[in-house]
Write a protein that binds this DNA or RNA. Structure first.
Lengths: 247, 247
DNA sequence: CGCGGCCTTGAACCCCATCAAAGCTGGTGG
DNA sequence: CCACCAGCTTTGATGGGGTTCAAGGCCGCG
């Protein structure tokens, strides 16, 4: 993989890229598939925050894999209102479609500095095709979760629920350290995720901190009692596949 | 196709099933594909309203195609709150997944009497595989639209936007008659679609009627000025494919 | 040490929820 | 043909969760 780390490496640096970790948890990857992934990662590129990787309605040049950093799918209304539709974390796919001449159905922007590579062709690596399919199912599940949040949860519940989702997804990519994960979103961005105002997000975050279940300082988040929080917000486990524990 | 119509046939009954109409608009279907579809429709079955076709977290027995009637994907919270996630109209697919041993990520319930058939295997009919892929992309686009509605639109805007979506989708299946479509949802169901209360839905519907842009009587809806309404709610056109005008 | 981005706080307001009750309508049976 | 009933729609009054507007504080960074 690339020799240019985006961020300072941890003392115990990971042997395998978070993207590979996530994808190989979705479907067992053979040596060929992993090798194809690693070659793709070798020619990965880095984009700066706020770079637009995909523009809604434009053709999708190539399917990408997020290697490092966060991106988000976003929709902007004519009057400037903004809604983040979903997150794209390491191991997630961008613009993966199975039909001819696909158009992007949403814009995708980098939230942090973002390393991506082209997704190896699933037709040549059946194990990857399976991982892509599971990933697509998970993406759909997360979209449905977002709809449930916006439609029927209170502001505080939305906050708890989305934090649990982020923790779960970061965990899948092996990006939990000491039960803590990097959270590059500002409160203003989080407001545009949860359909609320920055002011109200701030009040809910404080309430969560006073409630003792959320620590959020210096772009790092810890959820004190994930199981308890899961129960209180009524969050259902997300599974897309029988047997195989992945996803 | 089946000889048992669910509802009274119109004077100008359609030559082709709405489901076939929709799918063949998504990708050009050859004679074989259409024949496979029609054979599947011949052995279609009808379920009564409120039947649960798929249960969240359970295995998906077989992918289905909606032939006639409406269904919806739904999520129920432990305390009884309900959120409809999306609609399933004639020509839409239920439980179509490309990975092994898929689990349903949401429940699916029939809203009306619902005729469905098993989806012919895409691997045997490439034209159908393409139509399924385009349909999946459209489904994702509609999920994103729902997120945008719930996150950033006012109650009245949500109403207008969802009505435009329904009109568009019914049109794709050839189910617009005289610019009017059948709308089996009650105001209470619509509330659970738009994340609002039935009382407030009722007030918004009345406001829409007074505003002169919505007619809704006896389960039939007409939108007076679709283009104008599209502009006022800031709704973007939904396209998932270049060239080919379908979707 | 100053500056820009982000977080925090307060007060007033409003959109939508809640609760309760009444009216309508289409379908059914007498 | 009418009476009835269940489900759906409509209306009013009141309250609360979240917004809006505005200002101030904090913190990392050059």
């Amino acid at each position: 993989m690339s020799t240019l780390p985006l961020q300072f490496q941890h003392a115990f640096s990971q042997a395998v890229s978070p993207a590979v970790e996530r994808l190989s948890a979705l479907a067992p990857l053979d040596a060929e598939a992993i090798h194809a992934l690693e070659r793709a990662i070798d020619s990965s590129v880095v984009d700066r925050p706020r770079t637009e990787l995909l523009a809604e309605g434009r053709e999708i040049p190539a399917a990408l894999i997020v290697i490092e950093g966060w991106a988000a799918r976003v929709r902007i209304l004519p009057d400037g209102r903004r809604q983040f539709l979903s997150f794209l974390l390491p191991g997630d796919l961008i613009g993966m479609c199975r039909h001819q001449r696909p158009l992007a159905v949403s814009s995708v922007v980098a939230i942090t500095a973002l390393r991506t590579c082209r997704a190896p062709d699933g037709d040549r690596y059946p194990a990857l095709a399976e991982a892509y399919a599971v990933s697509a199912a998970l993406e759909e599940a997360y979209l449905l979760a977002q709809i449930g949040r916006l439609g029927r949860l209170s502001a505080l519940e939305r906050l708890g629920d989305v934090m649990l989702e982020l923790r779960e997804r970061m965990g899948r990519a092996g990006l939990l350290r000491n039960d803590t994960f990097e959270m590059p979103l500002t409160q203003e961005m989080l407001a545009d995720v949860l359909g609320l105002t920055p002011v109200h997000i701030n009040r809910m975050v404080q309430q969560a901190r006073r409630g003792g279940w959320l620590e959020w300082r210096a772009r790092r988040v810890t959820i004190t009692d994930p199981q308890g929080l899961t129960a209180t917000v009524g969050r259902a486990p997300i599974r897309v596949q029988a047997d195989h524990r992945g996803g």
